[in-house]
Amino acid sequence: AAVRTRHVGRNVRRRVGRGRRAYHVGAVHEATGELAGFTSASKTTGNPEHLLQGMTVVAAAHRGHGLGLVLKLANLAHVREYEPRVRLIETANADDNRPMIALNEAMGFVPQERFVSWEAPVAPAV
């Protein structure tokens, strides 16, 4: 299955709507015309040295070939053209996303802190 382009579009509009500048790179599988992968980074205008690396998604059929790394590196090169003052890139991963953790480690990212997210079901409103 291809990456869901509607989800990608919503995410982009949300970031830009919050006053961020957003940078994106996608890869299209030529044989099918489907989006095979996508990555996004954004930054606020108030901190010229800080970049937030957002989601990187690779469709299941295209995983395991280095596409995520190619996408992230291409997007960061694009960012550097327009944001030459960036010196710090922040990203986050779930503990169980070993492929993305390995990719980020290969790029030189190092863990800085851990956070835990809690959730609970909510009964339907009456």
Rank of each mutant, 00 (worst) to 15 (best):
H65Q: 15
R114S: 09
H24V: 15
L35G: 00
D95R: 08
G66N: 09
R21M: 08
T32G: 01
A106R: 14
G26M: 06
T91K: 05
N47Q: 09
A106D: 08
M107V: 02
M55I: 12
S40H: 12
S40Y: 11
V25D: 04
G64V: 04
Y23A: 05
M107S: 00
P111E: 05
G64T: 05
R87E: 15
T45H: 13
Y23E: 03
L51K: 00
R20A: 10
L103C: 11
R85H: 14
E30Q: 12
H29C: 09
A74R: 15
M100N: 05
H62S: 09
V57T: 15
A125H: 07
I89Y: 02
P48K: 10
N47F: 07
G33D: 07
V58Q: 02
S117P: 00
A102T: 09
R80S: 12
E113Q: 13
Q112D: 11
Q112C: 09
I101W: 06
L35P: 01
V3W: 06
I89E: 05
L103T: 10
E90T: 13
A27N: 05
G9S: 10
A92N: 11
F38A: 08
M100H: 01
Y82H: 15
H29M: 01
G19V: 02
A123P: 00
G46A: 09
G46W: 11
G46L: 09
H24N: 08
A77I: 03
G54M: 04
L76P: 01
T44N: 11
G9Q: 14
T91I: 01
E34Q: 12
E113K: 12
R114N: 10
A61D: 14
G64A: 05
F115Q: 06
R14A: 13
R4P: 06
R4S: 11
Y23S: 06
A2G: 00
E113N: 11
E34V: 03
R114F: 12
G26D: 05
A60P: 09
R63Y: 00
Y23H: 14
G17L: 10
